[in-house]
Structures are given as C-alpha cells and as structure tokens.
Simulated assay, not measured.
Amino acid sequence: MTWAIRSAVLASVAFLSIGATSEMTAGQFLAAMNKAESLGPAALMSSDVRALRAESERVLTLYRSDVAKQARAGGPRHSCPPPKGQGKMKGEELKTYLTGLPAAKKKQPFRTALYDFMKQKYPCR
C-alpha cells in the first residue's frame, strides 16, 4: 500500500473512532481533573488536560446555546447566568460539586452534571 493510501485509511479510522466515542460521564471528568491536578505544572502539556478543556468548552457552548434559546422563546429558563465574560466559574467550584455527587449521579453525562451545577450556581429569581 502506498504511503498516501495508508495515511488516508488511518485518517478515516481515526475520524470514525472519534465519532464513535461516547460522552464523558461526570465521574470520568472528575477522575481526569484529579489526574491532571496530580501532574502539577506538567499538566499544562498533558493531552488529558487538552481533552478536559475541549469537553468543558463543548458542554459550556451547548449550555449557553440552550439558555439563549430559552431566553429568546420567552418561556421559563433553566438557569440565569451572567453574560459571557462577566461570570467566573472556578475549576475548584466544579470539582467540589462533582466530588459531592452520589455515585449514581457520577454515572450521568458530564453535560447533565454541568447543567445541574449551573442551575444551582445561577438560579433564576
């Protein structure tokens, strides 16, 4: 097999395997946070930290989109966070929340856990 064909096949397999991965659970996210924390300064270079950052950005983007859709629809909203860039969420707050979840809730998707955290942190009044 030529190099170009081999590269195309590998790229296709990598693409398909990425698409087939399931959503990270709250427990997996917490375990990855703990692992990254244990690495100390080396965590900045870790692929695990990049994966954590990508997952949290993906879920926060979904969250912001959902809250914006609810606001435009004029109905009840899930939660009422401050405008983007004005609210600060510390990783330690999220870690504390995830650590306190019962074992059954740690099996839920990280997305669900984050939405619940945001509802608790930014309730609509």
Rank of each mutant, 00 (worst) to 15 (best):
Q108I: 02
F15M: 13
A103W: 08
A51V: 10
P81E: 11
T21F: 04
P123R: 14
P109E: 04
P83S: 06
P41I: 09
A42H: 08
A8P: 04
M89V: 07
E37V: 11
G40S: 08
R58Y: 00
S65P: 00
Q108Y: 05
A68S: 08
R125V: 13
Q86E: 15
E92Y: 10
P76T: 12
K35H: 05
S17L: 14
V59E: 04
C124D: 14
A104P: 01
D66R: 04
A68E: 12
W3I: 15
R111S: 01
L52I: 12
W3D: 15
S47D: 06
Y97V: 07
R111T: 01
P109M: 06
K119G: 07
K106C: 02
L62M: 05
L16R: 10
R77E: 10
K119E: 08
L30V: 06
L39N: 05
L114W: 02
T25K: 09
S65W: 03
P81H: 05
L39F: 13
G19F: 09
W3M: 15
M24S: 01
Q70P: 03
E92N: 07
L52V: 04
G87P: 02
P76M: 12
S79A: 13
F15P: 00
C124I: 13
Q120M: 14
T96W: 06
S56P: 01
G87S: 08
G87F: 06
A32M: 07
I5F: 12
A4R: 15
V59L: 02
L94W: 02
K119L: 02
A51L: 10
M24I: 13
V59T: 07
R58D: 00
V67M: 05
P83N: 11
C124H: 12
F110C: 02
K121I: 08
R50L: 12
T21D: 01
I5P: 00
W3G: 14
L16F: 11
A14G: 05
A26Q: 01
L101I: 10
F110G: 00
S7I: 10
G100C: 09
F29E: 03
E93H: 09
D48T: 15
S79L: 07
E93Q: 11
T61D: 13
K90Y: 10
G75N: 10
A103S: 13
R58A: 00
L10M: 13
T2G: 15
